[in-house]
Design a protein around this nucleic acid. Sequence first.
DNA 1: AGATTATATCAACAGACATTGATATAGTAC
DNA 2: GTACTATATCAATGTCTGTTGATATAATCT
Lengths: 103, 103
Amino acid sequence: MPKIKCCSNKKISSDLKKTVDFLKIISEENRMRILCILKSKPKCVCEIWPNLDLSQNLTSHHLSVLKKFDLIKSNKQGLKVYYELNHKILNKYLTNFNLVLTK
Amino acid sequence: MPKIKCCSNKKISSDLKKTVDFLKIISEENRMRILCILKSKPKCVCEIWPNLDLSQNLTSHHLSVLKKFDLIKSNKQGLKVYYELNHKILNKYLTNFNLVLTK
DNA sequence: AGATTATATCAACAGACATTGATATAGTAC
DNA sequence: GTACTATATCAATGTCTGTTGATATAATCT
């Protein structure tokens, strides 16, 4: 039986898995919305969650998921925590995604 | 409070939801693998499922999920059912995804 | 006709994860 | 110090969905 690259080649298969993990993170409406909200500039949590139809704690949870995956960065300023996109990592995953699916 | 586009604009918000639905479908390792397997040319189910670490019926299930979402097309030739990528729809979703996340 | 092959469907189960409510932590202001 | 604000964490719940095993359908062949 002829082997197919994305199933047999370890590097390609590994890239596919990483892409799928990335997509799992962003295939959630609220998280995707958070990423969009952060596109223009960094924002603190209290600027984010009233725009979503979410409770504060749930917003915080989704932010932590995004952060754990390095898709966003945070820095604390007094009481507030500002979140911003981690463009470097985000672009890495987007590039990888395009490679996996289209090349 | 200043409204944020992806939360207040109906068109943008609707596009975001469609993108998320699309990502939910493809953020599953086996389905993504199926799409990759079909990149080069149409294949019948019996050419697909032995390459995955999946049972025949589960492969069939994932194919039906992809088909229901129009990401693949099928045509029957005798006993065999050949599946192929629906490039038109796929590209539509990919374009939309890039718009939502990067623009 | 019966036998075999290719594919699809169905019900049941199990694990993952988004959501909720309550509470904790940490920083600021009085 | 106390009170208040901003954010995070935790346990419990419920829903969604991938997986399994069994079975059904449909086409071909003898």
